[in-house]
Design a protein around this nucleic acid. Structure first.
Lengths: 335, 335
DNA sequence: TTGAAAGCGCTACCAG
DNA sequence: CTGGTAGCGCTTTCAA
């Protein structure tokens, strides 16, 4: 292990003080001649500032914590990756933690992340109602993706316009003549997703469609469980529907398999509609209709809001992403 | 923003010196009485040691860099997530970077990761032959997943026993009477001793099966491109094969779609075989036969080797993961 | 068993 | 425009 050169070394090499070297390398100060001399010295020595020392001196780490509720959900898995990339592109780096569907773990990871002293936090929470979000949001800029943190008014949020999204989907389905739709809600360990349920009911009523609500097992369940659970619903309360509308694409994939288990052809016997538009949907389909939120839009909005908040020391903003109906697959006929 | 308590505060609160407090909190020194008093003080103040300051003082960051070649590959995406989780469980945290299929970016990210002064590096390289791995492996413990770094003898590795894996697959196929197989190669070579191509040829010859090699487009291609590329192959050089054997599951998913494009039923007209056993395969199937490497085995081996290397200051080990043939789907008949 | 003090490498204030 | 120098918060000798 060769000892790395320090700022001292560079300063000595360039024949200036450490202060001058520091300023020069950051382009903050110094005559052109000095700056150039310092740069050359740094170059010659292969110097790179130590981010640890810098962090201690400035009080900012350049790190952003990303906390996901469950990366078993393909959307979150992709989100985590995209957020990391976007942050890296903007000169910060992400520390990603995954609660894996367990609220207790979410809490523990949050504590670990906090100790890490990130400059900010990006979260896709399992339990948005948890009290701990409040404390965290008071200490760090926090931006929540996909929902609001009702207990943490100082947190920013990037939310989807589910109202508009559901309007599009139900209009689409009703327009094709479907009258009976099963809706698979997303799993929330602690809180039933009341608002989503209400939206579904309202839009279904508006277009004269009857709905059967299906609650999935918790996010920790593996894919086979999910498939069997949905297959059971299809044989039970949801028997005879012509559409399964899933509030996430991971659920929609499972619904496709459940249809196969029941011997229903998609989209001829049964249509399956997703609500996220993952690109793997292309591989999983056909016969999967999905709704797109524009992935980059979400990521850009979240990262943008957080960085503005960090850099200008203001509260993070809230923004809403509008939906586009992207019919990738084919929605089958009503029965 | 409330100022966090420091070690000084705890020391003052407990009526001891900072040194004593530091030792006491880490359980390194001190009479039981003192230790207890300091603990209580820390508790009362809600003290948590600042990892930045600690890192500066000790020279170790507790961070492990994870560099993926392309998380568009679902296997790598999952790998990144699992590695983060495993590291977190062992008291370290991961900084994940994704080269997204671009070797230039891989180089740049590696430089960024190095500046970060991680305690070690876990890599799934795009270009294992690149010269920069050599420098890196000399400065940090590095464990490479999925292949070896031929230019970096000091790096550890967790490799798959592809030879044994292919033997299993070809035996399986030949046993079912298949005589003509298309093999979709990955961009990465990935063998301890020999390129995948040679292995394929050798095992095919051994069991008397003829193969058509298909090279996929680069990892940056999107899923639709991949599908079309494979569909073209199925109409061209690979027309008439009864099996498409894909060296990664992501490719296998695309192959399933390509079969659909060509109007071939899976597994009746054409069997599709994967080589990773991702759990989403359950959702994407049916008719997808996959080979399992035991995901936890890989992650545990990689993380285990790296941490031993970091903690005991020895060169990381190399290990080989044995395959299991897990027939999830159904392999169809020969034609 | 405890404490004073010297760093770790960098930034930023304040004089010159 | 430049250079001392005092921290940032913690660990770790070395003495007491």
């Amino acid at each position: 292990m060769v000892k790395r050169p320090t700022l001292q070394d560079v300063a000595a090499e360039a024949g200036v003080s450490p202060a001058t070297a520091s300023y020069a390398l950051r382009g903050q100060r110094g005559s052109d001649a000095t700056v150039e001399r310092v740069r050359q010295a740094a170059e010659r020595l292969g110097y790179d500032a130590d981010p640890i020392a810098r962090a201690l001196a400035t009080g900012s780490t350049g790190t952003v914590g990303v906390l996901c509720g469950s990366t078993r959900d393909l959307w979150q898995q992709r989100l985590a990756v995209d957020l990391s990339r976007a942050l890296m592109a903007r000169g910060r780096h992400a520390v990603v933690a995954d609660a894996d569907g367990d609220p207790g773990r979410e809490r523990a990871l949050l504590a670990k992340l906090r100790e890490q002293r990130p400059d900010g936090l990006l979260v896709a929470p399992l339990d948005p109602d948890a009290a701990h979000w409040h404390d965290v949001a008071e200490r760090f800029p926090v931006v929540c993706v996909g929902e609001q943190l009702p207990r943490a008014p100082s947190a920013g949020a990037v939310v989807f316009d589910n109202d508009a999204g559901m309007a599009l989907v139900f209009d689409h389905l009703a327009g094709l003549g479907h009258r009976r739709v099963a809706v698979v809600l997303t799993a929330r360990p602690s809180t039933p997703d009341r608002p989503a349920e209400d939206l579904v009911r309202r839009h279904a009523a508006r277009v004269g469609v009857s709905v059967v609500l299906v609650h999935p097992p918790p996010a920790t369940a593996d894919v086979a469980d999910l498939r069997d659970h949905l297959a059971a619903a299809l044989a039970g309360p949801a028997a005879g529907v012509s559409v399964v509308f899933c509030l996430s694409d991971s659920l929609a994939f499972a619904a496709l398999r459940a249809a196969a288990v029941r011997g229903l052809a998609v989209p001829d016997d049964l249509s399956v509609v997703g609500f996220e538009d993952l690109d793997v949907a292309d591989l999983v389909g056909p016969g999967l209709t999905t709704m797109s939120w524009g992935e980059e839009t979400v990521v850009d909005a979240a990262v943008g809001q957080l960085l503005v908040s960090i850099e200008d020391d203001v509260a993070p903003a809230r923004s809403t992403i509008a939906p586009r109906l992207v019919v990738r697959g084919t929605t089958g006929p009503a029965r």
